[in-house]
């Protein structure tokens, strides 16, 4: 089996105070509807002045869906495995008190071999490394110890805010 050239993979690192524990619990990410991740094929998580050590592969995206019991139940009880994961993510989101129209991103689970493990990257700057999302090739994340090692990476805050 050929391994994908993961070091070239574009990672969208999102600000994730609540999304990081949510990903660890559900293997998914819920955010505002129609948020764009450009060409990123992977998602990383930044919170508590750290880029966390798991970089998940984006498996499936539902750009816009009402987060309610009707949709969550229909999908979580679907015979289709991808729909089922979307529905389970939505049910978890509802349980966490999320609501409204959202985007659901199904990710490779934390223990899935498709999820890359890197060293945690600390941020020592005075302000947050990102309050929205930034793009970094996976290879650079793997080599970095501090966010200052990623100094010229692309802050996608202005372009990709979705609605």
């Amino acid at each position: 089996m050929t391994r994908e050239p993961v070091d070239d993979a574009e990672v969208c690192v999102v600000a994730a105070s609540s999304a990081w524990p949510f990903y660890q619990a559900t293997g998914s990410y819920i955010c505002q509807a129609n948020r764009r991740f450009r060409d990123a094929t992977r998602l990383g998580f930044y919170s508590a002045r750290t880029i966390h050590p798991l970089v998940a592969r984006i498996e499936h995206t539902v750009p816009q869906i009402d987060l309610d019991d009707e949709h969550a139940a229909a999908l979580a009880l679907s015979a289709d495995p991808v729909e089922r994961r979307v529905g389970k993510a939505m049910a978890a989101g509802l349980h966490e008190g999320m609501s409204g129209t959202v985007q659901v991103v199904v990710l490779s689970a934390p223990r899935d071999p498709a999820t890359e493990t890197i060293g945690a990257i600390r941020h020592e700057g005075r302000s947050a490394w990102t309050v929205f999302q930034r793009y970094v090739p996976l290879g650079r994340l793997r080599a970095a110890e501090l966010t200052s090692d990623l100094a010229d990476t692309d802050a996608g805050e202005a372009d990709d805010g979705g609605h």
Partner: peptide, 13 residues
């Protein structure tokens, strides 16, 4: 027009 000015827009603030 609809805008959701919610936590997802700046998740760690």
């Amino acid at each position: 027009e609809k805008s959701d000015l919610r936590e997802g827009t700046a998740e760690d603030v």
